[in-house]
């Protein structure tokens, strides 16, 4: 995606021109560059940059929200006496096909607290996930498929 590199170059030039190398200036330059590129978007015929970037930002914010909110449950189980966890290993049928998609899905599942990807089946169709607070198998499976995997595939395939 050359437009992304162009955006970064805009931000770098803006930082150099203002002469103050601070992170806030650089991020403002990024937003300004995105606005400029968006205004001139009829010039670029077959680019998916303007669809892909909002979806990527959406994925990142969703992931950070999950990271903070559900870390608290692990924290609660650790610092209170007695255990409330009900661990279990469930298999999730994957829609992701290429290596990169499977890599992203497995890693983001591992990084979300409460779920940990343990193994991938031989035919690369099923991902086995260890869930720490498992109440309902179908609900947990649908949660991962519709939440994380759908958003990743939206970013990768748009």
């Amino acid at each position: 995606m050359p437009l992304f590199i162009l955006n970064i170059v805009f931000a770098a030039v803006f930082t150099l021109l203002t002469g103050s190398a601070r992170i806030g200036v650089f991020m403002f330059g990024c937003i300004l560059g995105y606005g400029i590129l968006w205004l001139s978007s009829p010039l670029y015929k077959d680019t998916r940059y303007f669809k892909k970037l909002p979806k990527t930002v959406n994925l990142i914010t969703y992931f950070l929200k999950e990271l903070f909110v559900s870390n608290l449950r692990v924290l609660w189980d650790v610092i209170t006496p007695g255990h409330i966890s009900r661990p279990g290993i469930i298999g999730i049928p994957l829609d992701a096909e290429t290596d990169l998609e499977i890599f992203l899905v497995a890693n983001l599942i591992s990084l979300t607290p409460g779920t940990l990807s343990v193994d991938l089946s031989e035919d690369r169709k099923t991902l086995f996930v260890h869930v720490m607070f498992l109440e309902n198998v179908a609900a947990a499976r649908a949660d991962i498929k519709n939440g994380l995997e759908k958003r990743i595939l939206e970013v990768m395939r748009s």
Partner: peptide
């Protein structure tokens, strides 16, 4: 594996 684990779909697959 802890005996609180109540379902294991991986058993026999890996």
């Amino acid at each position: 594996i802890s005996d609180r684990t109540w379902i294991d779909e991986l058993k026999g697959n890996g």
